[in-house]
Amino acid sequence: MSFILTFILMLIFWVLLSGHFGLILVVSAVIFSLLVAYLSHDLLLGGVGLSSLIIKSVRFIAYLPWLFWEILLANFEVIYITLHPGMKIDPEVIEFDPALKTDVGITILANSITLTPGTVTIEAGKKSGFKVHSLTKGADLTEMVTKVKWIEGEE
């Protein structure tokens, strides 16, 4: 299952990058997609069913507009702090455990935290929990954790 999906994804990617449809290009596209899918099909989609993959993808796309809005706000905050002559920063390290179950959820949450308000992830893992470096005191991440848990969904 994951083998076929990876093969189709790689084929689409090849066509997007090349944009030509000569015979030798199509044949080499099929050969190399088969090779890559054989070597790494358990890395990209390892053991995930098709239906849960589609649900998660749709939820992730629904999460994106909120994330972009937060990224914009975050950038204006960082620009304000950077250009302010007094350098009003008061950094601190926050520790919390969001209790996420899957690697995908942890990756999405860590990257979202890095991209949004005044916070950068410095440690993330199932066992160790999250450590977040914040530029100003009192950063609130509960809303983002709730949204990422919603993407992960109920197994």
Binding site: V78, T82, H133
Partner: peptide
């Protein structure tokens, strides 16, 4: 250039 240490420097480098 301006921020005082490594952990504050990664904020502009990572986001902006």
């Amino acid at each position: 250039l301006r921020f005082p240490d490594f952990f504050t420097r990664i904020h502009p480098a990572g986001k902006t």
